[in-house]
C-alpha cells in the first residue's frame, strides 16, 4: 500500500455537475435520457427513452384516444410568474376572487444555472382516467367524448365536494355564483367552441411557458414537445394513475 498515491487535489467529481452541457448534449443525441437529473438525484444513469415514448402509431392512438385530444405542455423554466395567464383566465371564465382555475406555484431550487426558484403553473389535467368523474354521484362532471376535456354540468351538481377530494391536482373549487363546482375546462365554452385555437392562459403567456394543442396530431407543437428525445417530459403525481394530459418539461 505504500506505493499507492492518490492525488486528492486532482480527483474528478463523478456527480452531475461535472458533466459539461456539450457532453450531455452529445450523449442525448444517441437517443438516451439521463435519469436522476430532475429528481434531484446525484446518480447519473442513461436509459433508452424510446420505449417510454411510443413503439407504434397504434400505441399513440391508444394514449390519445380523443380527436382532437387537447393537452398542454408547460415549459417550466420559461415561466416567470407574471400571472398574465391567471388574469386572462379570471377574466375569460368569470373566476371569483376566492377561487382559481389555474395558479402558479413557487419552488425554491438552489440551481446550477443561478436561478433561485422555479415556477410551476398548475391547472386541471383533463385526465384520461379522471378520478373526479368516477366519484360524482349525479354525473355532473363528465369526460367529453370528443375532446377529452373534463366538463361540468353545473345544473346537476349537488355540491357534495367528493370530486374536490378525488382530484389529485386540487383543480376544483365550489363556485358560489354557479352553485356548483367550477374547474378549468381548457376554455371550452368561452373560447374553443367559438373557434379560438388556444386557451386564454396559453394565448396570454408571453414566454411560451404554456403550450396548448392537439396531442393526437403529430404535426402539432405540443405533440413534438412531448415526443422528443432531448428533454425529459413528466407529469405531476403520476403515481395516482389518473393519466393526466398536462405535461411538464424544461430546457
Amino acid at each position: 500500500m505504500k506505493n499507492v498515491k492518490i492525488d486528492l487535489g486532482n480527483l474528478k467529481k463523478e456527480s452531475m455537475d461535472s458533466v459539461s452541457p456539450m457532453e450531455r448534449r452529445e450523449f442525448l443525441k444517441i437517443g438516451l435520457i439521463i435519469t436522476g437529473v430532475f429528481a434531484g438525484g446525484t446518480v447519473l444513469s442513461a436509459v433508452s427513452n424510446f420505449n417510454s415514448v411510443f413503439a407504434s402509431p397504434e400505441e399513440a392512438a391508444e394514449k390519445y384516444p380523443y380527436k382532437p385530444h387537447y393537452g398542454m405542455v408547460i415549459r417550466q423554466d420559461r415561466c416567470i410568474d407574471c400571472e398574465r395567464c391567471i388574469d386572462a383566465c379570471t377574466l375569460t371564465n368569470d373566476v371569483p376572487s376566492y377561487g382559481w382555475r389555474t395558479r402558479i406555484l413557487e419552488k425554491d431550487v438552489p440551481d446550477a444555472t443561478g436561478r433561485k426558484r422555479e415556477f410551476i403553473p398548475v391547472l386541471c389535467n383533463q385526465c384520461n382516467n379522471p378520478p373526479c368523474v368516477r366519484a360524482c354521484p349525479t354525473r355532473a362532471t363528465v369526460k367529453d367524448e370528443k375532446t377529452g376535456i373534463v366538463l361540468m354540468r353545473s345544473y346537476k351538481c349537488i355540491g357534495c365536494k367528493n370530486c374536490m377530494l378525488a382530484c389529485p391536482y386540487s383543480a376544483r373549487y365550489f363556485n358560489e355564483e354557479r352553485h356548483a363546482i367550477d374547474k378549468c375546462n381548457f376554455c371550452y365554452d368561452t373560447r374553443l367552441s367559438k373557434g379560438e385555437k388556444l386557451t386564454a392562459c396559453a394565448a396570454a403567456c408571453p414566454t411560451g411557458a404554456r403550450n396548448f394543442g392537439d396531442l393526437s396530431d403529430p404535426d402539432s407543437d405540443v405533440y413534438k414537445m412531448v415526443h422528443q428525445l432531448e428533454r425529459t417530459v413528466w407529469v405531476l403525481r403520476p403515481e395516482v394513475g389518473a393519466k393526466p394530459n398536462v405535461f411538464y418539461t424544461k430546457g
Binding site: 349525479t138 354525473r139 351538481c157 349537488i158 352553485h179
Partner: peptide, 19 residues
C-alpha cells in the same frame, strides 16, 4: 350538501353508478 334539492332530483334521474 350545497344543493340538497338537486340531490333528491339528480340522484334519481342522473345516477352516477361508479360513485
Amino acid at each position: 350538501i350545497e344543493n340538497p334539492i338537486r340531490m333528491a332530483l339528480y340522484n334519481v334521474i342522473s345516477p352516477g353508478l361508479t360513485s
